[in-house]
Structures are given as structure tokens and as C-alpha cells.
Nucleic acid binder design. Sequence first.
DNA 1: CATATGTCCTGAGAGC
DNA 2: TGCTCTCAGGACATAT
Length: 279
Amino acid sequence: MPELPEVETMRRGIASVIGKTIQSAALVKSNYRPILVSPRQMLCRRLEGRVIVDTGRLGKRVLLHLDDEQILAFEPRMTGLVLVTDPPNQEHLRFVAELSGRKSPRLMFWDRRGLGTIHLLTPKAFDQKWGPHVLGPDALRIDGTQLRQRLGKSRRPIKPALLDQKAVAGIGNLYAAEILFEAEVDPRLRCDRVTKKQWDRIAEWTIHVLQKAIQYEGSTLSDGTYRNALNQSGQYQNHHRVYDRAGSNCSRCETGVITRIVQAQRATFFCPGCQRKKS
DNA sequence: CATATGTCCTGAGAGC
DNA sequence: TGCTCTCAGGACATAT
């Protein structure tokens, strides 16, 4: 489940496409749900001949900035991968762009479950769809004041609130759990009862946890889907302290047992010993 | 407006 | 062994 660290790793992994020209592009799967590709018509033709001038990331999306100012955006959602090497299989390959260069480089989008999206957007359309009025600040640049402004009056529990991309962009289910563990905040605590100090701690640990996860090239869970651009597993799963560790002893308080609960239809992992509801 | 729930999708793993 | 069923959680549509 690509969240910010996995998407950032993908972005870094495709640096070699910068400066290359898209010679041809094709949507591979004819049965790919049309709503997931926008525009439905002409997308590939509008790409042909364009130069990729830069890569970027917006929350959990990989961006390619083109020389005509259009932006090609890949949104991996659950199982999507942006690749410059062979995908895990041919069956779920969704998009291929042939690029200029001696080694005939390719840029591909592979997606086993097919929930991911591909968008080609003008700057104006991009802003309307994902501008600052839609998405919150990037999680790597968040601070406690911003979090408190955006969530401090909410009655939702803090953990599902951190998944709200309008509040802060890039955090998903896995890292929300890790962040709250490090910040020692109970995931069930209502936002409007989180103290200023706690918001600061949550923001600090958000940046720290995500940076660390980027260093380890993201988390490859037991289904093995997530790979970096060189088709290698991430390593941050070996550093998870709560996620998918129900039943283990807490690595911090040594007396607590990591517990799995369900919040807003999503699994939450935490240590009831050291993430106690306070304030 | 804020918040909750339903939907899409595939394949791993559980349980019989 | 082989079948059926549940579950995983991105973003967004619809309901409350």
C-alpha cells in the first residue's frame, strides 16, 4: 500500500526518465476501468513527443512534468507501481511509454488490483483536482500548528483523522500507526482533546518516521507487492514497531502487548500500555 | 457543513 | 487436496 515513503522511493527510482522524450505511449489493459484513466481519449497521443522535464510527488502520487506544462500523474493506491524495469508480471501491466535513448528505456505503470489511476492534466486542471484547497500540506513539511489548525476542532479520533488527505497529505494506514506509537498518543483520542504539545510531537514524529522509512525505501508487506523501481523489496517493514505486530510485546514499555482494533473500517495497531488516553 | 459508510479490485491465507 | 470465503486499504461517491 504505497504511502508517502513508497511513492517517494518510486519517484527517486525513475530519475533516469528526466530529459527523455516520450516516443510512444500505450494503455495496455483494454479492460482497465475507464474512470481510472483521464482523459479517456487521446491521453497517449497527447504524450507522444513530449519531453519529461522533471519528476515530482504530490502526497501519494508520482508526477511527471512535461515540456508543455502538462502533468502526468500516477496514483498507485493499493498495488500500483511506477517502474523503469520489468514489472512483476505482464498480466497487470497498465501503461507503457517508450522513451528516447540508446537502451530503449521504458516507463511503466503496473497495478495488480487495478485501483490505481493515471491522469494527464493541464496546470489548471491539476490545481482544481489536487490544489491546496483540496489536499493538505505534505506530511514531510507538516508542523504542530498546521495540524492543530486543521484537525484541532474535529471530533474524530486522531488516527482516522491523520488519514484525511485534506488535513495532511501522504500518511496512510501503516504510517499513521507508527507515528502515533512514536508520539505516544492513543489512536482513539479525539482530535479536540489532543493537546498543543501532542500536536507538536505528532508532527515531529510524522517527519521523522517518514524520513526513516524513505531511507529504508518503504515497507514491503507480506504480500510482497510493493517494490522499488529496481524491483527490490523495501526494508522498513523490519523496523515496524506496531503495524501488523498484534500479539507481540511492546518494544518500548516491555509490559504492553501490541493490540489490533478497528477504526473507520481500518485496522489500527497500538500499545495500550504506553499509548494511553491522556488529557 | 462534518462524519460515516459503501464501493472498487485481486490474490493470499484461513477454514472446512 | 481443493473449494469457498474473508480481508487488505488507497480515494472517492453517496448517505446520514
